[in-house]
């Protein structure tokens, strides 16, 4: 609990704000999933940019928000596009994917912050200006978050697919899912960078 107070500003922890940010980002995830599709993976019919939204949310809003937006957003997209039977599976798998990606970023931000604070106490030369700009993503962290998400998503979709449509058909969708997840990680990272530059208040929204 002590750790939580150091991430996220006052606004980000108000209950109305939490609920609204989750709802809006869920809508964004659903729209990204529904809107841009490249037909490749037969089981789910397409590669979509849902993963881009999932990773963006995980990187900027953290695990608590991402677990719901990722799961619910993709489930609603399945529902609206006529793949309703996948909705419960998506809810679970993408939820986990978003959660762990967010958790990894959260850990790294906390470690970075601890280090910064240590440095500040060791060298109290300059009167420390309150700098909110402590949000930084390092490449290995992104790689790890992407990899964990990739394993969760392809692994669980294969298992779920195997139960529903058999191993043969489920194996066919693995390459598609891998591409989708890789595109999602890279795209999510790119967008996190461009959005934070163009709209700095996003930095304070991580929980």
């Amino acid at each position: 609990m002590k750790q939580r107070s150091r991430l996220g500003s006052g606004i980000a922890v108000s209950p109305a704000y939490r609920i609204v940010s989750i709802s809006i980002l869920t809508a964004v995830t659903a729209v990204f999933t529904l809107l841009i599709r490249i037909p490749i993976a037969p089981t789910r019919g397409y590669i979509n940019l849902g993963d881009v939204a999932i990773y963006f949310t995980a990187f900027t809003f953290g695990p608590v928000t991402a677990v719901i937006t990722a799961g619910l957003g993709t489930a609603i997209a399945d529902l609206l596009s006529g793949y309703a039977q996948w909705a419960p599976i998506s809810l679970f798998i993408h939820g986990l994917q978003g959660f762990f990606a967010g958790l990894i970023v959260r850990r790294s931000l906390l470690i970075m912050q601890e280090r910064l604070e240590k440095n500040e106490t060791e060298t109290p030369s300059i009167p420390s200006t309150p700098s909110p700009n402590r949000y930084r993503l390092s490449f290995p962290v992104i790689l790890l978050a992407g990899l964990v998400g990739l394993i969760i998503m392809t692994g669980f979709y294969f298992l779920a697919g195997a139960a529903l449509v058999g191993f043969g058909a489920a194996a066919v969708e693995i390459p598609g899912n891998i591409i989708q997840c890789v595109v999602g990680t890279i795209g999510g990272f790119l967008l996190t960078k461009t959005v934070i530059k163009a709209y700095p208040p996003v930095r304070d929204m991580f929980l």
């Binding site: 606004i11 108000s14 109305a16 704000y17 609920i19 609204v20 940010s21 809006i24 980002l25 809508a27 964004v28 963006f56 900027t60 967008l191 461009t194 959005v195 163009a198 709209y199 996003v202 929204m205």
Partner: peptide
């Protein structure tokens, strides 16, 4: 990027 800025910006107002 524009879409995300627009939607993220609307979060405080909708809250």
């Amino acid at each position: 990027t524009s879409v995300l800025i627009q939607t993220v910006k609307s979060i405080p107002v909708m809250s």
